[in-house]
């Protein structure tokens, strides 16, 4: 069992580059244009929504979104709370990191866990990934949005992640039941977003729509944005199941006969519930090395997520049901 990561270890990798100069002698770079667009989107929501919230999942996309939110409203604090849907199965380091960010940036952090799922003891080992995700993630998110009456929720999804996401609007409308109707989304022209809605309806807003995975990593690198250490390679206790390396993050993980956690140098390309998140063997311990590995790798990042394999167009189906 690896000891819990000390807070002091959770730092961004050493970075030598400095942020790009604000006014380049030539044109704005693609990252500057993406940053300005994301900030524009966040300010529109802050100005037009009654009760916005930013979903904070502790991952790298959330880290970038949080960083952009701080920039967008500076010197004000982001004028909305941050919501983490905690399935209780997240990596322990994610929770420590989340609490540290909230403290350091003086954020209003809300944490929600589905009390029904908790009472029934829903978990990925006992109930499988589908039930766990449905109850502890999808249902929990809807509960939290209803509980606090949020009418706009920022999410970190990107259009390059998956095919059905490529058609997602920046402002994605959900019915009062949080359902997404692909045929009933509003055209988005120029940088004009129509944020009007009826009572009970809500908007999911994706300020990172036009970012790619490489953009995210490069921006983290340039802006020196803190991310959990789990993204960097380290010796961690893992077992191999169905070809996937699962980190034994706590003693709730039932080991099968013959399974013994082994220390391997691994890292994670996405973060989520530890039993559902595959590790990759790696020695990349700095951001440039991570980016290098990502660029040379031959599988897409969502492959580490268990839910996408289920069936063709599964993401589209999940979205219609209210999954982010």
């Amino acid at each position: 069992m690896e000891p819990a990561v000390a807070l002091s270890d959770i730092e961004a990798a050493p970075v030598t580059s400095t942020a790009s100069p604000a006014v380049d002698s030539s044109r704005l770079t693609h990252l500057q244009r993406l940053e300005a667009e994301s900030i524009h989107i966040m300010r529109e929501v802050a100005a037009e929504a009654e009760r916005p919230v930013m979903l904070y999942s502790v991952g790298k996309d959330s880290a970038v979104m949080l960083h952009l939110a701080v920039k967008a409203f500076y010197p004000s604090r982001p004028p909305f709370p941050f919501l983490h849907v905690d399935t209780t199965w997240k990596f322990r380091e994610m929770i420590a990191f989340r609490d540290r960010m909230a403290r350091e940036l003086d954020l209003e952090l809300l944490v929600h866990t589905n009390p029904d799922g908790l009472a029934q003891g829903i978990g990925p080992f006992s109930h499988g990934s589908a039930v766990h995700t449905d109850v502890m993630k999808t249902a929990a998110l809807k509960q939290a949005l209803n509980l606090y009456g949020f009418d706009a929720a920022f999410g970190g999804a990107r259009r390059d992640e998956e095919k059905s996401r490529a058609k997602e609007r920046v402002f994605s409308f959900r019915s009062a039941e949080h359902r997404w109707d692909p045929k009933n989304q509003r055209p988005e022209l120029w940088s004009l977003y129509n944020a009007r809605k009826h009572r009970g309806e809500s908007i999911r807003v994706f300020p990172l729509s036009n970012w790619t995975e490489l953009d995210i990593w490069q921006y983290i690198h340039l802006e020196n944005i803190p991310i959990p250490q789990l993204y960097f390679a380290a010796e961690r206790p893992v077992v191999e199941r169905d070809g996937t390396l699962i980190m034994v993050d706590d003693d709730r993980m039932p080991l099968k006969p013959g399974e013994t956690p082994q220390m391997r140098s691994v890292r994670f390309r996405t973060l989520g519930c530890y039993p559902l998140t595959g590790a990759v063997e790696s020695t990349a311990s700095t951001l440039p090395e991570i980016i290098q590995e990502m660029l040379l790798t031959t599988t897409s990042e969502r492959q580490g997520r268990v839910i996408d394999h289920d069936q063709a167009a599964s993401m589209e189906k999940k979205k219609q049901e209210g999954y982010f």
Partner: peptide
């Protein structure tokens, strides 16, 4: 994702600097 480039494997820092200045 990005296109492949020999620089990625040889000198990732140089690659990143170049990518950073893309339009």
């Amino acid at each position: 994702m990005a296109h492949q480039s020999a620089l990625i494997a040889e000198d990732i820092e140089a690659y990143l600097t170049a990518h950073q200045h893309k339009s």
